[in-house]
Nucleic acid binder design. Sequence first.
DNA 1: CAGTGGTCTAGACCACTGT
DNA 2: CAGTGGTCTAGACCACTGC
Lengths: 245, 245
Amino acid sequence: MHSTPLGFDERLPLYQRLRDALLERISAGEWLPDQSIPTEQELSNRYNVAVGTVRKAVDALVGEGLLQRVQGRGTYVRRPDFGGSLFRFFRQVSASGEVRVPQSQILARSLETPPTAARQALGLGEEERCIRLERLRLLDGKPLFHEQIWLPHTRFAALLDVDPEDFGNLLYPFYEAHCEQRIASARETLTVETASAEVAAALGVDASSPVVVIERIARGYDRSPLEYRLSRGGAATFRYQVEIS
Amino acid sequence: MHSTPLGFDERLPLYQRLRDALLERISAGEWLPDQSIPTEQELSNRYNVAVGTVRKAVDALVGEGLLQRVQGRGTYVRRPDFGGSLFRFFRQVSASGEVRVPQSQILARSLETPPTAARQALGLGEEERCIRLERLRLLDGKPLFHEQIWLPHTRFAALLDVDPEDFGNLLYPFYEAHCEQRIASARETLTVETASAEVAAALGVDASSPVVVIERIARGYDRSPLEYRLSRGGAATFRYQVEIS
DNA sequence: CAGTGGTCTAGACCACTGT
DNA sequence: CAGTGGTCTAGACCACTGC
């Protein structure tokens, strides 16, 4: 039975180094989303640490939302759900309160030089090009928000071969299926502006009425930026809540 | 040496019941903010559980932000800082990035029947009255946001005896000093509206320009609502960021 | 130096899942 | 039933704090 040494910084506690080692293997795609990782017992043997230490390392990753324990079955790589996303807070006026995925309508797709904000967010060079998507998201036929999306051409070239009609309502499973790019986390930034004529028309609101802008930078498991997205929706339907302490 | 029994629900794990017991003592004011709680050893003896179990209970409360460990010194009741509050995201255009507390200016104070939203948020009866404060918060003399605050008269009567000039920039230490009411947590809800004439004048923005409204319900350690607050600031200076995964 | 929390181990028993 | 994670215990040693 081999025992894999935990390299990294010797000064860090064991469970931290183990956590890093596990994260490494998730990032590398060795364990894919929805798959189970080895038993605590196995990991304990493999890395030659006590089960309690394995538990603490796994606890850390569970806390970070990367793993998920299931009593009696095992520990799984969690497929990130973006339920906490700011998008969720556009009031989808359904009285029932159930979560409904809005429909998508691709308005445009092109290969072009990205604007500076997108280029910097994605960490691209001056010369690199992006696939740009423009889409409208609707609920019950009514426009909810308007999106512009930039993706590095190098990673997402395969998207150019797909008929825009065939893009699903959810893009991330789509990226995974066609481009083997898996989104693990994101940062969203909320601001407010007044609607431009174009956006007002797309959303069906008055020109120069307030609009909520959500800028999203989505990253892979190795934290490299994969997608830059700008979404705009009518401010009247937006309501966001936080707990603080 | 006595051992205090952990009542509560027998079905819950020990560390959960211990966590509840500790929370009880914090809520009751037995251990005040910035004070240290007993040693893990002491708690282990007192409640007749292993130190590891005490650690897990304390870990839970640390995770909830109620306790704070200090290596080599002890574990302390944390004074909640509202650094995560939405207020923080009104861009205080200081290039340096340091946190600056805006100045406060009390515009009005009165004893009155609260509006329905405030009454319901505070869980008051139809007949109960509130102390209402209106204040302006400024940075470098420029208005940042406008606030209306409702406090149950029964708990905060002492505030009526204080000269409005003597209200500090921070209200919560003030509540604690004069009314023995300690704020432990809060819920904030963000919406966007267009400025009324009054608000526009107070903030120095154009009438009907977009305004961010933050509604806050602040609670004590026993989670009973203590304060209802409505704050409004110009949307142009607002920028909020979240991490999701 | 004594006392605190931080790390790590080892092992017992329980509760739940799937077969 | 065997196998998984969940709880709980007991004790060793370390790192940091304050006197």
